[in-house]
Simulated scan of single mutants.
Amino acid sequence: MPLWLFLLLAFGGIMVMGIIVDWVMKRRKRKLHMDAKQSNEHAEQMLNDTRENHNDNNFFL
């Protein structure tokens, strides 16, 4: 199988899955987005966790 055909099928599959998820969520009238305050708190928590994990891992010792 040529590489371009594999990539086309992979990206096409991802696009189809996104369309299906979007259609189901619209049908259920749900949203996947968090409000701004929750999004900021989540991002800050992820940054703090990343900093702590980075400081705990000493790769060059």
Rank of each mutant, 00 (worst) to 15 (best):
A43H: 04
W4K: 12
G18T: 11
N58L: 08
M34Q: 14
H54A: 14
D22T: 14
F60E: 13
F11C: 10
I19Y: 07
G13D: 02
M15G: 13
L47E: 07
I19N: 02
K26M: 08
Q45R: 15
N57M: 08
I19H: 03
A36W: 12
G13Q: 01
I19T: 08
L61C: 04
H42S: 12
L7W: 12
I19S: 03
R27E: 03
D49R: 09
G18L: 07
W23M: 09
R28E: 02
K31N: 13
L32D: 06
L8R: 06
L8T: 10
L5G: 01
L5D: 06
V24W: 03
Q38L: 07
A10K: 14
N57T: 13
W23D: 04
A10W: 15
N40S: 11
A36D: 13
E44L: 02
N48G: 00
M17G: 03
A10Y: 15
E44Y: 02
G18Q: 06
A10T: 14
A10S: 08
N55W: 07
N48R: 04
E41M: 09
M1P: 01
V24A: 06
L32I: 12
N48Q: 06
V24Q: 03
I19P: 00
K37N: 09
K29R: 15
A10G: 02
N55E: 14
M34Y: 08
G12Y: 01
R30Y: 06
E41Q: 11
L7F: 13
M25R: 10
Q38C: 02
V21S: 10
V21Q: 07
M34T: 08
I14A: 15
I19K: 03
N55D: 12
F60S: 09
K26E: 09
M46T: 09
H42K: 10
Q38E: 15
T50W: 13
V16T: 12
F59G: 03
R30D: 01
N58V: 11
S39F: 08
N48C: 00
N58P: 00
A43P: 00
K37H: 05
L32V: 11
P2V: 07
G12S: 04
N40Y: 13
P2R: 12
F60I: 09
W4E: 14
L3S: 04
S39N: 08
D49C: 01
I20V: 15
V21Y: 13
E52L: 02
N57E: 13
V24N: 01
R27T: 13
R27Y: 13
M15P: 00
G12A: 01
F11H: 05
H33N: 08
V24I: 15
F11D: 04
